[in-house]
Amino acid sequence: MLKLDKLSKTYATGDTALRQVTFEVTAGQVVGLIGPSGAGKSTLIRCINRLVEPSEGTITLGDTNLARLKGRALRRARRRIGMIFQEYALVERLTVMENVLSGRLGYVPAWRSFLRRYSPEDVSQAFSLLEKVGLSDYFNKRADALSGGQRQRVGIARALEQNPELLLVDEPTASLDPKTSRQIMRLIGSACRERNLPAIINIHDVMLAQQFTDRIIGLRAGEVVFDGSPRALTDQVLTRIFGDEDWTRMRGEEPDSEQTRTPTVDLAEGV
């Protein structure tokens, strides 16, 4: 279980990215974090595994307060948290297998990882994860030889190889096509259900968030402005999170009153 209490982050430049963020995520819950660009979504999940240093507040995972850990204790906490990245963040020149096995780095001593001598359990788990994400034949391919969707699958396998207690997912579908996006979201969702794994997913695609998460948290200018079920995400709520926009049109439904638009406005929208 993850608990954030009054988490704040102010960057050295004076920009406040997070203000007093407080919420709890229970086991097995998949939380979608939505909000406009610059709302602090990335900062929030990076504060949890301390890739970004939080300024104030506490982050409790199990019994540990992550916010004040240092050195070895911090690395031991990080290995309990799996992370999936926007541009996959695979090590391009390493093989798929090395990328998946790098999920064990927090558990094995440096000399073992240097010689790539992982324990039989680690290796067999890596093979079974690759099978699960549908890449069982690709283990000796280099990561940069894969397509976007395949890379993200390796990213998921790497995160799961950690046997995490929490999954942090940063815009997993931002550079993928709609179909692959859905497959990736489904994969993350089923992995979480299977392992009763809580997850926080940053996502700017509201429809994907509604379809694949159990709960939505809306962030605007570093503050939580919505926390509830995906069904409760009404037009008013979306306006509160993102600002004014014709939400009905975005959902692909016909608006009640068709407005006639001038061509110049349409041109500007396309940009």
Binding site: N49, L51, R75, R76, A77, R78, R79, R80, I81, M83, F85, Q86, E87, A89, L90, V91, E92, R93, L94, E98, S102, G103, R104, L105, G106, Y107, A110, S113, F114, G155, R158, Q162
Partner: peptide, 29 residues
């Protein structure tokens, strides 16, 4: 590429492991 370094650090890797897994493959050629 800082994201590759970040990803390896996020697994709980130590400094030597970050050098070996995130830096070395990128600078070796």
């Amino acid at each position: 590429d800082p994201s590759q370094i970040e990803a390896i650090r996020a697994t709980g890797a130590g400094w030597w492991q970050v050098v070996n897994y995130a830096i070395q493959p990128q600078v070796m050629p």
